[in-house]
Amino acid sequence: MVVFSPSRYSLYTLCVVELLRRKGVRVSGIFVRRLVNPGRFIQEFRRDGKRLLRKIWRKLILRRQVDRSVKYETLQTLARRESIVQRSVDDFADMGIPVFYCDDLNEPSVLAKLDELRPRLAVFTGGGLLRSELLKRCGEGVLNCHAGILPRYRGMDVIEWAILEGNLDQVGCTVHFMDEGVDTGDIVRLCPIPLHPGDELHRLRERFEPIMCREMVSACWDVLNGTAQRVPQRAEEGRQYFIMHPALIRLVEEAMSRRVMGE
């Protein structure tokens, strides 16, 4: 199988690859998007706005720092507990897993390399859409872990949307195969994640990440062993959501702080 990573330093990628490797899964290549790429920055800034800067700070600058004030598992504590020592995907190259850099995962050089590798399965550990030319070169398909419960909540900020709409049982993650639509591919694993009274909105993704990592690894294992069930989605079963406006995010934060106070 192969892995598509949003950056060389993605801790989520490092954890997924290492945990798969330890299960005996053969990773034949890691495709990595180059970070320093003006086109990419413009595209992601258009999508995420100023939130991109916070994302860069958290995922790149603070990536391995353990915040001792939090009481839940994070990717950092997972990596520490599992002794995942790799600092970048290049460390996997030293272990015999080739790493290929690109500006865009859909570019011809990636497609050519996939034709060579003929992977049985692929794992996607970053945001963005993949085109059909890439998807059809990945054997059984490309797995993604979406931070929302499908089919109901497709798209962006779906944790916030589920809370705003009062659907707290629709908060969680879904491992699914990617297709050309937005979060519309076959579902493999659904994992509702209950909210705790002490949860803060800006920390929720941090709490979700190690869960998503484990769900992804389990889903890959099930697919490779032939025990996974693929459940197709119907378009009319869900809605596509977009980035939530700050005025609505404030309402979600207020609702969550009232939960903290036990109101």
Binding site: L164, E165, F242, M244, H245, L248
Partner: peptide
Amino acid sequence: DLRFLNTALKLTD
């Protein structure tokens, strides 16, 4: 449908 309100908010920006 709260998504409609969300988009209207973005138009005001």
